[in-house]
């Protein structure tokens, strides 16, 4: 890239972080082209795109943790979360858009875990972008055949009597696990409970550890 002062105006035309251009592949450029053309055609506005980035950046496991801690401390909320997940998480500003959220509850007898064998479907508005391993060939292949072996790789060993239920997501059906509330948390506030809940426990590959 030239550093000639005549390029000053040109530099201001950039819409992304300086120095990123060196790492941009062809599809990163195609994204810019499609976005610019669709904005010019009025399909969406630059502002709507910016809002989309903001929503993306704001989504994360902390939103799911909020729903979990609320369900642990409010039986009526837990019931609504289990019966109509998409509606229940709206309370925290989470919009599942055109997908349905199904929340599955762990109990002393049943442990749930989620996967998407066909692609990478995940409750992204609630938990943020999925970890790479969730999208990986090895996780997708094996979780439905040998879930206990995969759980063991995540350090999770369940008692023999516990039934493991694996939920295979689809384009329109997204799952989240409601983990069990750990022992020794009776005196914790809802905020303290939220802090205990992590992403992997809501995918179901781990359990929430006691504090």
């Amino acid at each position: 890239m030239s550093t000639n002062v005549d390029d000053h105006d040109h530099d201001h035309a950039r819409t992304f972080v300086p120095d990123e251009e060196d790492s941009l592949g062809q599809y990163a450029i195609v994204e810019m082209a499609v976005r610019e053309l669709l904005i010019e055609k009025g399909v969406f506005s630059a502002d709507e795109f910016r809002q989309g980035l903001e929503v993306f950046d704001k989504a994360g496991p902390h939103l799911g943790a909020r729903a979990v801690a609320r369900a642990w401390t409010d039986p009526a909320y837990k019931e609504s979360l289990l019966s109509d997940g998409s509606a229940a998480v709206k309370e925290f500003g989470v919009d599942m858009n055109l997908t349905e959220l199904y929340v599955v509850e762990n109990t002393p007898r049943v442990h749930n875990v989620i996967v998407c064998t066909l692609c990478s479907c995940y409750p992204k508005p609630l938990l943020g972008a999925p970890p790479d391993w969730y999208k990986s060939r090895n996780y997708r292949s094996r979780m439905v055949r040998e879930p206990r072996a995969v759980l063991a790789e995540f350090g999770t060993t369940l008692p023999d009597g516990v039934e493991v239920r694996v939920h295979d997501s689809t384009a329109t059906m997204r799952y989240m696990v409601l983990p069990m509330r750990p022992e020794g948390t009776a005196d914790l506030t809802r905020e303290q409970l939220e802090a205990l809940v992590n992403r992997d426990a809501m995918i179901g590959v781990t359990v929430v550890p006691a504090p």
Binding site: V115, T117, L118, P131, D132, W133, S136, R137, N138, Y139, R140, S141, R142, V144, R145, V150, E153, F154, D168
Partner: peptide
């Protein structure tokens, strides 16, 4: 369609 196929350890 990967469900159930043999595969290696999960890279976390």
């Amino acid at each position: 369609d990967l469900g159930g196929l043999p595969a290696g350890p999960v890279d976390r």
